[in-house]
Structures are given as C-alpha cells and as structure tokens.
Design a binder for these strands. Structure first.
Lengths: 375, 375
DNA sequence: CTGAAAGCGCTTACAG
DNA sequence: CTGAAAGCGCTTACAG
C-alpha cells in the first residue's frame, strides 16, 4: 500500500515521489523530470504531475536526491567562527549567505568560542553532513592539522584569521597596512610619542602581531626608535585595557597619542581617557570600527575592516574551489579604511618639541568625517 | 571492485561503510554497530573496525543514514531572520546554536531582508532539506499563510516578532510592558510633555504598535491625555529620525522628554539633541540597547531586550515540539530591562509646572548605572 | 556476537 | 515522450 499517511502516528508522513506518480498516473521518473524541470515531457503530463504535487503538497527530499546525484554536491556549506554574534563575523556571514543564495546553497553557521576541540568537532560534523565546503575563522591552537586533514577532502577557506600554515585559501584584513596607516596618520599630526595597546597573541593569531609590526615599522620609518614606544599588551578585554591605559596616562611620561589594535582595547582606552579628562588632549586611533563612534566627542578615528568584502571574497574563493579550481592556495588581503572622526586628528598638547607652538588643527573639531583609502 | 578511489577523477572519492567492512573483514552491519556505538560487538571486532575507520579516514554519511532511520530526524534546524548581521538576531542565533549543539543539531541560518517572497523561498528550501524545525523572525507581509502551511509539517517557532495569527509558538520581547516602563520612568522624573518617536508599522509588525500602546496607556494612567503627546511616526532610519526630532525640538512646544521606540530612532534623537545642544536638557529613553551608550554624556537610558533569553526559549520551545509536544501554541514574553544611564534621569528644565523649582536629581549626573527589572 | 536481505526516496543509465 | 531496473550509503528487521 502506498498510502501510509493515516497509519503513521506522528504527523502524517510526507508524500514521496511514488505518491505523486500514483496520483498523476505516471512513473516516478516522469515526476522526477517535472520536479527537476527536465525536457521531454508533454505539456499535458507536466500539468497532471504539477497538479498532483500541489494536491499532496509534495516537497522533494533533497537529501535523498543527493545520494545518487552525479556531481555529489549537497548545495550546503559550513561557516565556523568564534561567535556568530560577533559583529564582524555576522557581517561576514551575511555576505557569504548572499553569495550562497545565488547558488541555491544553504549555510550552516556555528561558533567554536575559540575552543579548538569544539572547532574540530564542528568541522567533523559538517563533513559528516557532506557540506560542499567550509569557511573557517580558526580558533588556532595546536589543532591546525585537523584543518589540514579536512582541507584534503572538503574545500576550505580561512576568513578573518590567517590559515596558520594550512595549505588553503585565506581572506583576511590588511592588518599590517592598516596599522601602518594608523601610525602614519598620527605621525602626520605631529605625534612622536605614541603608545601601542593591544591584545595578547597567546592564541597564536597573526593579526595581533601583524598590527603591532605594521605600527612599529611605520614609526621606525619616521625615525622613532622602538624603545621610545610605550607598549601595553595582553589587553584582551575592555576592562583590562581601561585600567592599563588609565595607569599609563597618569604616569610621568604620558604619550601624546594612542593606537589601540582591536575593539576592546579601543573601548577601554576611550573610557580611560574620558575618566582622566584627556579625551580632547590625547589622540586616539583604533583598529576595528563600531557603532556610535561618530557620536562621541571627539568622534573616534578608526581603521575599519571591510567584513562584507571579506565575506564576499571568501565565498567566491570557496565556490571556485567547489567548482574544481586547482589554483595554488593564496591569501587575499582586503584593504582597511581609515575613518577620521576627530580623536585621531588631535595635535600633541604636551611634549611636542618637533612642532613647538603648533595648535590644534581644524580637524580636531571632530565633525569632519573624511575617508581615506589606505594603499 | 570496491576500490574506486584511484579511478574517480575529482579528489579521491570518499570511503563508504563497505570499504571499511572489507578492510576490517566484517559485514557492513558490524561497521554500522561500531559507528553508532551499538552493543553486542566483541572488543576485538570493535578494535579491528576502528582501525579500518582510522586508516581510511572514514566519515559516515549522515544524510544517507537519515534516509531510513526510524525517527526520521535529520538533526538540523533552520533559523530565518531579517538579517543574520543584525545584533539582536545574531545574539538570538548564538543562543539557539548553543542549545542545538547540546542535541547534536546543526543550524542553517539565513536572512530574508524583510522580503516575504524570499522568506517563503527560504522556508521551502529548508523543508526540502528536511530540517526538524524552523525558527522564524517573519517578514510579515501577506504571506502568513505560507508559514501556516509550513507549520503543519515542520515544527515552527516565531522569534522577536509575533506569529501574526499563525497557530505556532512565539517568543517575543515585552514590548508593551517595556514601553510602559519607559513612560513610567520619565513620568516619575517629573515629565508630562513626552514625545513618542518610532518607526512606521507598514510591515504589519505588532512590536511598533505594542510599544506605542504601552507608552500611551501608561501616560493615560498618569492623567496625560493622548492629545498632549507629540508623536513622530515612520522614523524608519536614523537620518529620518534625526531630522524629525531636530524640527520638533526647534518648535515652540518642545517636549521635556522623548521616548524612542527602536534603535534607529534612538540614534537619530541622540544626534538631533546633541546638535541642538539639548542632550543635557531634554530627557531620552530608547527601546533597544546598543554598544557604547554608556560612554556618551549623558549615558543613554534604554529599555533593553534580552536576545539571549529569547533565543534560548525559542530553541527550548522548538525542541519540545520536535520531541512531540502537542501543547496549545503559546506566545512567550521575555521581559525587558530598563538600564538607567543618565539621559532618562534628567528632570524637566522647561515647562514643568507640576514640579516647579525642582532641580536636576543626582541621577542626572550620568555615571550611576542602576538596573531595574520591569515587572 | 554477526551478517545477508530489503528498503529509505531519490537519480542514473537504459530500453522502449 | 515515458518508465522499469539498479543503486547511492546507510538503517531496519531478521535469521543465524
């Protein structure tokens, strides 16, 4: 008997192609043709089959279809990030999803919370689900070899954080160039004593190191010796950053400007400067952008990454691989944008021998939001 | 021949249970037992099979397994929201994903951009993929009947926006109560002339209307006639809101306080008040919370929803349905929290006959962040 | 403790 | 233009 609908207990069982075929009075192959819009079916048959599909509210089972389908594709991909709630990750997600939608591909999204074990478990699960490919912001750690293994079978693209030696494409922000741009911007506004504040690199991410390098090398080019740079490291969250910056600005050798190399340290620095009443005296440029920074006084000058572009490119690279590309794995760098909002355009107020007597520039007025592309 | 690995062109084909069985010298059912940790396999056999799995790097195909599996579950669910990049949605997503992970369930996430057509297409696609259930922030529109149809076959829970008449569970914010709380807060600080600013409800969302109702009714209870309330509607984005509020505060009958009923209108109001130099004179309470509101001066008092809790509850409801619950569909309301940061604690500076001569309360000093649970 | 047969809902490769 | 047979990689229901 075909009609098992009324004997299965839990919510009538779904109709299958055979139900449709029986109702339309055709073979299942004909139903398959209609469902997949294949040619060589008479108008009238198409019509009858469509009617049966409608009547039964038939929905083809994609998973069953994939099982024998020639190309072996499931039209699904997996996205694995630290947290899907992170603003940058979710912007990346949105962009990837759009590209995927254009290819009828669905996106599994999940968070590993920087736990390499969980990252590995998630990737295993995705492979068991036979995703066509994966996009990964890796938790790093010492489990890179897992990714290596995965990449052998399933196309893999790294986003936002580098591939850590795994032979796969990666799409990341221009950390080095962006940080150098920030340094140049502050140097150009007369600062020579500029503090570096950033997170630790205990997770082994390249980003933090690259930002520090970019910052330091630019200072070096302008003749500022590294030993003259106050460095606050391991500021992993806003509170730690706030305390550290507060201590620093209270000290004798207060910097005239601060570069913060990630969001939390920027927020901490903003708070510390406000609390000390120095937010209009000590210049600040932060890496990473966030909401409301333009409402503060002064507005916060930032080096903004471009998560939409990162997501787009990652999706493009992944789909190219899925389509069979055998090109050498490459790392793609998406340029950042320096957005001047005021805090980064303050001229040194104290200890500025090289620009003695120079006053605040008009940019210090905060309102002008000029955008400069970094090269 | 079993070993087709070296003859398939595109990246050696994956090993199957039969490959493992052949290598271990057992039947495929035995491999199946080991993979699924079923009992009644000798220690030694388990060991041999495990070794073969390891050697071949075998990964069971979950989709194939699901095909005949008794319970018919795929251990996947779908999340459909306006945009996965929206902070509230992504926080909800994170919470859902956590609950799902505990059940070995993977989450498809996608955005409909408030397009009902796309919403429908996404839900269709999810059903073809045989998700066990769906969580939906609906685009509304007139396509509610689609959701109705979907809910008949696949468990469905609405989040963040109400179900619009579809007989399904919903988990939403306490819009009415939260807005009433905001009104009460401002009334309690001496305000009687309080403006309402919010988005239009052209999309048919209940939230906007509920927030307006909650606000108005509370005013009514305090003896403020509705006709005395300046109302700015259709402020769908920050820019529109900024212009409208700017015009309003320049007018003769400026309100002493403003309630903004969603994020963009709050941002617009903040900008307009700052531009007019009134941010320390006109009180402001906004619905929805966002980053950095505590750094502004004064800090922005908000009625904050609880997306984590919303996501958790939505997942709990969905999984209960998936597990067979036949309870009456219900709408669950997650309470909001009023976070006092300064802007909502300003006392009226002009036109405050009922509290003549009363000065700024100490709360007006901004720093104190007191949290009050609304009832 | 173990495995051969049947079948999940489709697609493929054919034969009419 | 159409459909019967075989098979995708597993699980189920049995029989040993």
């Amino acid at each position: 008997m075909l009609d098992t609908a009324h004997i299965t207990g839990s919510g009538r069982s779904r109709p299958t192609m055979r139900h449709v075929a029986a109702l339309a009075g055709v073979g299942i192959k004909t139903v398959s043709r209609v469902v997949n819009a294949e040619p060589n079916v008479s108008q009238e048959t198409v019509h009858r089959v469509r009617e049966a599909i409608e009547r039964l509210d038939y929905q083809p089972d994609l998973n069953a279809g994939n099982l024998k389908r020639a190309n072996g594709k499931t039209l699904t991909i997996g996205l694995v990030v630290e947290s899907v709630a992170n603003p940058i990750s979710s912007a990346i997600h949105r962009a990837i999803e759009q590209k995927a939608w254009e290819r009828d591909t669905a996106v599994f999204a999940s968070s590993h919370g920087d736990d390499p074990i969980r990252e590995h478990a998630i990737m295993q699960a995705l492979q068991r689900r036979r995703v066509d490919g994966m996009i990964l912001t890796t938790a790093g750690g010492s489990c890179a070899y897992h990714a290596e293994g995965a990449a052998r079978r399933t196309p893999l693209v790294f986003v936002d954080r580098a591939s850590g030696g795994v032979g796969a494409d990666a799409v990341i922000s221009g950390d080095f160039t962006g940080a150098a741009h920030a340094a140049r911007h502050l140097l150009g506004h007369g600062h020579r004593r500029i503090a570096y504040c950033g997170p630790g690199d205990h997770l082994g991410f390249r980003s933090a190191r690259e930002r520090e390098r970019g910052f330091m090398e630019e200072l070096g080019r302008w003749g500022v010796p590294t030993t003259d740079v106050p460095v606050l490291q391991d500021l992993d969250d806003a509170e730690t950053a706030q305390n550290a910056v507060a201590t620093m600005v209270r000290s004798g050798s207060r910097p005239t400007a601060i570069f913060t190399s990630h969001g939390p340290s920027t927020i901490g620095a903003i708070r510390a400067l406000r609390e000390a009443g120095l937010h209009n005296s000590v210049a600040l440029v932060g890496f990473d952008d966030f909401a409301l920074t333009e409402i503060l006084e002064p507005g916060v000058t930032v080096v903004a990454p471009d998560p939409e572009r990162i997501g787009q490119m990652a999706a493009e690279r992944l789909f190219a691989r899925i389509d069979g590309s055998r090109a050498e794995p490459n790392t793609y760098v998406v340029p950042t944008t320096l957005i001047a909002r005021g805090s980064g355009e303050l001229w040194p107020k104290i200890d500025a021998p090289h620009r003695k007597g120079r006053r605040l520039s008009p940019h210090g007025q905060a309102a002008a939001v000029e955008r400069q592309r970094n090269r």
